[in-house]
Amino acid sequence: MLESIDCMHWEWKNCPVSWYGQYGKGDKKYPTIMLEAVASQDLWIWHAFFGVAGANNDINVLDNSPLFDDLINDTAPVLPYVVNGVGYEKGYYLADGIYPQWATFVKSFTVANDAKHAYFKKHQEGARKDVERAFGVLQERWGIIQQKMAVFDWNEVYANPSRNMQRTWIERCETQRRKNKEMRDRGTHLSLQQNLMDHIWQEVKHEDEDF
């Protein structure tokens, strides 16, 4: 599991009036800038994508985010693991219901129809609160961002030597097409969700046996 992902709206009180249409949202008092973040239990933020206009939603942010660039370009490390006897190769993020059914996301259930689903729902939603806690800390300690557009140097370039630099342009395009299809695979998403649910449900069985 590669931590938890979510978005938040950051109020931008000094937004120019002419930009209110882009950055305004009906349920917000002020125009907002959106922040997509991935955070761990210790409140460490592993990924942050900041600056999308507040009139958007989490999916619009994801479509513009560089979160999966390394995966699509085949430069991300391979992370093989086994859940409930089934092997997987891509890490996943805990996400809420708005996110798509991709192989890289594990979501909860809107309705839990039995004890197994309820147990999984409780644990997934409980673990996903890590990113919400991180947002709370950011809002408390970084209020200055409300007054500015961003605190990121857009001219900063990160060098990332990749193994696909030797590939031809056609090969890179084919790799990106294949990786993008794998990442968006709904079947893998449902399989992983089911196997994770079965895996943690064993905890209940073991507790009952011990009792």
Rank of each mutant, 00 (worst) to 15 (best):
Y119I: 05
S65Q: 01
A115V: 05
L71H: 05
K116P: 00
G136C: 08
E125F: 04
T110L: 12
G85K: 09
T104E: 01
G85L: 06
K129L: 11
G87N: 13
F120W: 11
A127D: 09
I145C: 00
G97Q: 10
W142Y: 15
Y99P: 02
L79I: 14
L71F: 08
S65D: 03
P77T: 03
T110S: 09
D69Q: 11
P77W: 02
G91L: 07
G97H: 05
N113Q: 13
A112S: 14
Q147S: 13
N64V: 08
E89G: 01
F109A: 05
A95T: 09
I144E: 07
G97A: 12
A118N: 08
G143A: 14
L79Q: 14
Q124T: 12
Q147T: 12
F135I: 01
G87C: 10
A115N: 04
V83L: 13
A118I: 00
P66K: 10
K90T: 10
N64C: 12
I144L: 11
D70E: 13
N84W: 03
R133D: 08
D96F: 02
Q147N: 13
H117P: 00
L79F: 06
G87E: 15
K90E: 14
G143T: 09
Y88T: 06
K129Y: 07
I144H: 10
Y81M: 09
L94Q: 02
D130S: 14
N64P: 00
A134F: 04
D96S: 03
I145S: 00
Y92A: 11
S108I: 06
Q101E: 14
A112V: 03
W142N: 12
P100W: 06
Y88R: 05
F109T: 04
N84Y: 06
F68I: 05
D69R: 09
F135C: 05
Y99K: 01
Y99S: 03
Q101D: 11
Q146N: 15
K90S: 10
L138S: 02
D114A: 03
V106R: 07
D114R: 04
F68Y: 12
L71E: 06
P77R: 01
K129P: 01
R128H: 06
L79W: 08
V106A: 08
S108N: 13
L94R: 01
D130A: 15
T110D: 07
Y99Q: 01
P80T: 07
S108H: 11
N113H: 14
F105V: 01
A112R: 04
N84I: 04
S65C: 00
F105T: 00
N84V: 01
Q124C: 10
Q139P: 00
D96E: 06
Q139E: 07
E132T: 03
K90W: 12
H123G: 04
A127K: 10
Q146H: 15
K121W: 08
P100I: 05
T110M: 10
N64A: 14
D130G: 05
N84L: 00
A118F: 04
V111W: 09
P100H: 09
Y92M: 07
G126V: 07
Q124H: 13
V106Q: 07
K116S: 06
Q139A: 11
L138E: 02
V82H: 01
Q147W: 11
Q124M: 13
W102Q: 04
V82I: 15
A76G: 06
Y81L: 10
S108E: 06
W142P: 03
I144V: 14
N73Q: 12
A95K: 02
D69T: 01
E89K: 10
Y92G: 00
Y99R: 03
P80C: 05
E132W: 02
F68V: 02
N64D: 08
